[in-house]
Structure formats: C-alpha cells, structure tokens
Write a protein that binds this DNA or RNA. Sequence first.
DNA 1: TCTGGGGTCCTAGGACCC
DNA 2: TCTGGGGTCCTAGGACCC
Length: 435
Amino acid sequence: MLDRVDAPSDQTLPRRIAHLDMDAFFASVELLRYPQLKGLPVVIGGGRRREDDLLLRLREAYPDREWATDSLDHIPVDFFPRLAGYTGRGVATTATYAARQFGVGSAMGLMKAAKLCPQAILLPVDFDEVKRISRLFKSTIREIAPVVEDRGVDEVYIDFTHVPGGQREGGRVLARLIQKSIFQATGLTCSIGVAPNKLIAKMASEFNKPNGISIVQPGDLQALIWPLPCRKINGVGPKADEKLQGHGIHTIGELAQRERGWLVEHFGKSYGAWLHEVSWGRDERVVQTESEPVSMSRETTFERDLHAVRDRAELGAIFTRLCQQVAADLSNKGYLGKTIGIKLRYDNFQSVTRDVTLDSFTADPATIRRQAGLCLKRVDLSRRIRLLGVRVGKLVKPGTDGSVPQVYSEPASPPPPRDKIRHDRNDLLFPELDG
DNA sequence: TCTGGGGTCCTAGGACCC
DNA sequence: TCTGGGGTCCTAGGACCC
C-alpha cells in the first residue's frame, strides 16, 4: 500500500489533475463477453435497439443446444455478423484497435466502415452492460481517490492533489495503482494523463494509448503541448480549427504566438480570450464531483426519411413514443421540467428546434405530448424528415431544496377559438399531430 | 457512402420591467 | 412624448463533447 508521507499537510501542494479514459470502451465490454474475438477487428454500432441478434441467430441455427449467456465464449468466430453488406444509417460507436488499423473510427458511418474493413465483426451496443461496467470502474476509482468528475460513461477527471501518493512521480504511482485496480475489477484497460490542470490532463491521456500513463509538468508546455495541432484542445472543434488554419495557425504553439487582442478581434471576446489562455496551458477549472441535469431528451433517426403527409400515422406514433420515453426518464430520475421542445432534422440535414416554456412544471406524458404537438405545428412540415426529437428543459428536482415547484395543470377554460390563435396550414394538413 | 443519440454552453435578438 | 440604460427571461440556432 502507499505510504502516507505526503498526505495533505498544507494547501500549497501543486495541483495534480488526472484524466482517465477507458480504452475502446464499448468494444472492450463486448470482448469481455466474447473473448474469442480478441485481436480481431470489431466495430460496435448499428444503433437501433434490438434483442441480442447473435443469440437469436444461434438459437435458430442450433435449436437443439442450450445457448446460455455463460457459454457465449464457445460461439465460433465465423458465426458472428460481419460489416460487409451493411445497409443503414448507423455509425460506429467505437472500434477495436485491430479495426482502427483499417481506418475505422468512432462516429464513422457504418457503410463507409464496411468499405474500409468488410471483414470486421459488427456488434450492437449493450447499454446495460456498458452502464454496469461504467459504475464499476468509477466506484473503483472513488475508493482510491474520492474527488472524481463524471465525463460520460467512459471518462473521468480525478483530483490527485491531496490523495496519499498523488504527488509521487508527478502522479504516476497513483495512476498505476488506479489502472491496476480497474483491471482487477473489470478486466479492462484505460489510459491516464496527469497534469497541472484538466485541459492538459485531457490531452496527456491521449499520448500513450492504449493502457498508457503520461505525466506532464508545468515546464513541459513548450516541448509536449505546443507541437500539437489546435484540434487537440478540448473545445476546438472542426469549425474553429478550420478558421484557425485559415489564419495559418496549425499548432498550439502557433496559437500561443498570437496576441490576445488579435484573437479577441477574430474569435470574439470570450472565445478569443479563452484560446489565448489554453494555448499557454492555463486552466483553473476545478474537478466537479456533482452536477444537476439541465435537460432530458429523446430523439430518433428514421430508417428512411418520412413525410408528414404520406407517413403521418408512423410519424405520429413515433412522436408519441418519444414523449412517453422522455416523460418516463423524468419520472425515473425524479425531475419535473418547464420547457418543452422538439427538434427536427430534414433530409438535407438541416436542423430546426421549437420550444415553449410553461408557467409551471410537469413530467406528464400527455402534457408533454400536447405542448410538443403545438411546437411541431410551428415548423415547415412540407419537407422530408430524417430525425425527430423531444426535449424537456428547465428541470427541477422536487424536495431537494425544500421548495415545492408549481405543477402544471391544463387550463380549465376551453382553448381560444381556432380562428383566434395563430395557425398555418399544418393545422389542417396534420390534425393528428395536434396537441 | 452521407453524417447516432445524449448532452452542455454560448450568442443574439426581442419582450418586458424598472 | 421621447429617449436612455440595465437586467432578466424566452427562443432559435449552432459549436462542441462523449
């Protein structure tokens, strides 16, 4: 066990922040169940909820055998579905390192991935198992270092500063202990970066994947950070990167050479100043152990683009289901919301949103359905739609601060006559979408 | 070969109030 | 009657992240 010679004794310890990233998480979770696929190209995706396709196929092919979930490691590799011939709109959630060799990466369309690596095995995501392993690796970390910030199912920040052993070798000793403990608890590997702040720690965790540890000290900025492309900064996406490149700025070092005023001039007061700060490796954000959700939503991309007239029954059924799902999510987690909204994506990928804020809170599916229906009538429904979503925002959790939120109830008086409220032709065309 | 689903945060204009 | 500024809330869109 670690000794306690450097246990917190004063507040002047240098900040040591770790970023931990599970390696190819979704795919690795599948490999736990199907160890016979180890070393093979495996792509996780295909999106849509369904029964475990593999078990269904097995039972059809071998009706005489009992395919229990604990005998899955006996399934011959040849039996697994391949990416070749995939048709559909799914994207890859993640890919094993063997599949990445072929250029397949997360967020890539599966049809494209099938071209690059048709022999790759395609497995759907098992969300329940992913969540179980996620809880397991996070609780393992918290037993060692309690200050942990959730960044999704497969990532966390950890504050090493005041953890016993957290300062040794710049954090490497504690990082090794955490890696080892996670492997013992889950059988999975992760990559860890330790640095003076979150910004650098996040970049450092990528230096040595998979199963790596990288330590960055304040003096390493020039050697380790400045040569990196700006896109490696968490918060510089494709748009900002393209604009930076347009100004001849490709690396973080080049970014650091621009004057703050110049950046503010070209990228805005807030973003420009932030770019300047991060290029010099400065980031004072603390590791946040708690957070409250701001909104909850459900959305779905259709198998084929739908039209509000021709496919109105189908669209209406999906719409109602989304409202019920988001209402159930709110109830399950104990939240009420005040803003109801919808999102549409047209066949040309353009998105629109509409929302309305009630004067009180709700988690009632019928209320959400009605208000979302009114929102739907405010958008152009003449074009084909590929995605529909329902969102509830301005959330409160009753009973947390002692106050009782006013719960929404439908107005007792009849709605105003139809010719008094704003209408467009959607009303007449699509009455079944009414609230 | 078009591009999932769940989120957060920021910006900007307009309403409305003081 | 006209002209203000500041603050806050609402709405729509978009960038970005996991």
